[in-house]
Each structure stands twice: as structure tokens, then as C-alpha cells.
Amino acid sequence: MNSLKDKTIIVTGGGRGIGAAACKLLADEGANVIVTCRTTDEGLSIEKDILSRNMSAKFISHDVTEEESWQSVIEETLTLFPQIDAVVNNAGNYNFQSILDCTHQSFKSLINTSLDGCFLGLKFGTEAIRRHGKGGSIVMMSSVLAKIGAVNMSALSAAHGGVKLLAKAAACELGPEKIRINSIHPGLVDTYTDEEFKKNYPESLDSLKYEKDNIATIPFQRKASCDEIAEAIRFLVSDESVFMTGAEITIDGGLIAQ
């Protein structure tokens, strides 16, 4: 499998969940994968996993909300590989709180990671891709919450709605340079065990019950696997989607078709 041979791709939030699955799949398809995240042990673990299969990966510590951190990731990547072909803006935060329970600080924190982080990835990714002038692909991880409302998910909806239209605006602006921007909209994804979720998102424990109660409402009666979302990422960074920009891939088992 070599649909991404010699492409260099930055994946944010690459240490766990969808990001980790994407890093492994893109590497297996021949890409040089830059695994970025804040948690060093997780990022190094994914790098090690990929290297052990004789594929190409490098972990770089990264806070997607900081411009300086983006600058460092781009510069370090370009010391290792000749050019950057794609950026997968996957890093995001989670919040499951009513509007009254969600503090302004929590709201801003969610927006900062999930929307501002995508904006900075778009900005720095575009600059990096422009350096070689051959075009490239930027993938924006949004959600079905960019298309429908849901109880206790106001902050997530606001962030993901912003990401969706940020992608479309960028697609119009950057199309002439062959820089493609598309968004992915997962429904429920089987990302973490309950224990991992409790550790990662202690403020949003009510979400565990919500997700279990709502699986029955998904026409496919199950969550997506991280690998299924990763496959859409692979498609969008590959040359199989060269005429695709400003588009959305919804992967939700039919959730919002009803």
C-alpha cells in the first residue's frame, strides 16, 4: 500500500484516538508522519509503533493553540523532510455541559483548542505548503455537531460549526493554489475506554451515560471505529481526492440523515 508514498503529513492530536489511528494508517500508506500532541509519552509511543514496522514517523511536542509552537513544528519538520504536503487538524477538546453549567472559561478553552487550533493549523499549514507551490491538502476535523444541535453540547457545536465554515472559506481562498481544504464530520466514535475518558475529561462524565443511551438512535446501532475515521483522512490527503475541496465527509452511521 503506497497511496501516500513520500508525502509528509502533520497530524495534530496524534497521540491517541482518531489521531493515533490516522498516524498509523498514513504511515502504512507510505507517508512521513509528523505525530504532534502535548502528551510526550503518548506521542512517542505512536512514533515507536510506526518505526517498529519500518515506516516513517517523528513525534514533535506541540500545543496547537500557540503560534510559536506551530512555527517550531513546521521548522523541525522541514529539517527532516524536504516539504510539507498535508496537515490534519485533528486536535480538539471535549465539553459536555449545559449552557448554565459551562463557565465562560470552559467555553473559551474549548473554542481555543478546537477552533483556534484549526485556524492556526490552516494558517501555518498553508504557509508551509506554499513554500513548494505544488499544492496540498488540509483536513479539518469537525463533527456532526456542525450540522445539528444537541443537548449539553453548545460549546462543541459552536467550535465545530466554526471549523466547518472556516474550511469552506479557506477552500474558496486557497483553491487557485491547489491547496484543498475539507472537513470530516464524525458522529459518535469509539475513541476511549470509560477509564481513559474519565482521566481525559473529568468535567464531562455525564457524556458516558449519554453516549451509551444514544447508540440505539444511530441507524447502524454502533459507534464508528477510529480506523473508519482514519480512512476518510487518508482519502482526503491522498491524490484520490484532487478535485475535492470545500467538501464535507459525514461519517455517522446515518445519524443525521434521519
Binding site: 441507524p219 481526492s241 475535492m244 440523515a257
Partner: peptide, 10 residues
């Protein structure tokens, strides 16, 4: 896992 979706290639 993709169903009921609209995919634009435009």
C-alpha cells in the same frame, strides 16, 4: 460507516 451522506466532489 458512511451512510445517508452527501459527498461533494466539485
Amino acid at each position: 460507516y458512511i451512510t445517508g451522506a452527501d459527498i461533494n466532489v466539485d
